[in-house]
Design a protein around this nucleic acid. Structure first.
Lengths: 141, 141
DNA sequence: TACATCATTGCAACTTTGTTGCAAAATATT
DNA sequence: AATATTTTGCAACAAAGTTGCAATGATGTA
């Protein structure tokens, strides 16, 4: 069984030097539990870090396999923590994402896996994203 | 059986006045056959129309149900023609989209439908997007 | 067809978002 | 603790998207 890695250990495991920005942004993710847009992070730490640093940090996290991206229709890609198994350059996040139209929260529905899709001849899949939008369980009444 | 609507008829059907910009942009879609990003349209008609016009035209087309959006991970939403059944404010495009990592072409794979997903309690889906990326049949060798 | 009305377009000005190079600061290594 | 290496912030910029408004174009009616 896996013991949950600390923020610092996660960074070290991926051969990243441990800096304030990285610790801080990474902890934003684990505290929130959900996916974050660049803008979310900027709002929650703009006083502390330069915009450019946030861009570069997110990019590094994606490259190292610490977070994965979630496509959206509104030109504001979301980022979410990967499971431990994700490695640099190779993501294994074949779960579903749910974006609430009401509150905007983006959930990783880890329990549900993306069904295998049979593509036409000649098409080869390297990644599959399934994004469901609608109303989440908090916004429904 | 449906007879394919002309550009002008499509606009009229959706209660839009027929203008050069709309005719032109709409025909870009039917000629290309695939999904287009805002940038694609801008390149192919920048001399003719203002950037702002393209933004507004695309927005109108989405609202009227003439085109639908395709989420992406690179902050460049793609737009593609809807089937005839799509009405204003209510899209029925539950087919799969394929984005080629090589050539960048975005295909609507109409033949393949998105499998029904069972969501956790309290979650209600209004739309489901399935985006597969990889190598398309033209780029594969 | 000409007119009046209404919608659309282009322009300008602006805001937001994302990128790049470089010097200063922080981190890691010895 | 000193050096080498990375990371950060700043500045300057490029690209993407938005808004108001006047001018133009489309549409329906006489």
């Amino acid at each position: 069984m896996h013991t949950k890695l600390s923020i610092v250990d996660t960074l070290k495991k991926h051969q990243l030097s441990v800096t304030d920005a990285r610790k801080n942004i990474l902890s934003l993710f684990s505290e929130s539990g959900n996916a974050l847009a660049h803008a979310d992070i900027e709002q929650q730490s703009s006083a502390e870090f330069d915009r450019v640093t946030i861009y570069r940090t997110l990019q590094t996290f994606v490259e190292k396999g610490i977070v994965h991206t979630i496509p959206t229709s509104d030109n504001s890609v979301r980022y979410a923590l990967c499971k431990d198994e994700c490695a640099a350059g190779h993501h294994h996040d074949d779960h579903i994402h749910f974006i609430c139209d009401d509150c905007g929260i983006t959930y990783c529905l880890d329990q549900i896996t993306v069904p295998k899709i049979k593509l036409p001849n000649g098409f080869k899949a390297s990644q599959t994203d399934l994004i469901v939008s609608g109303t989440c369980n908090k916004c429904e009444q």
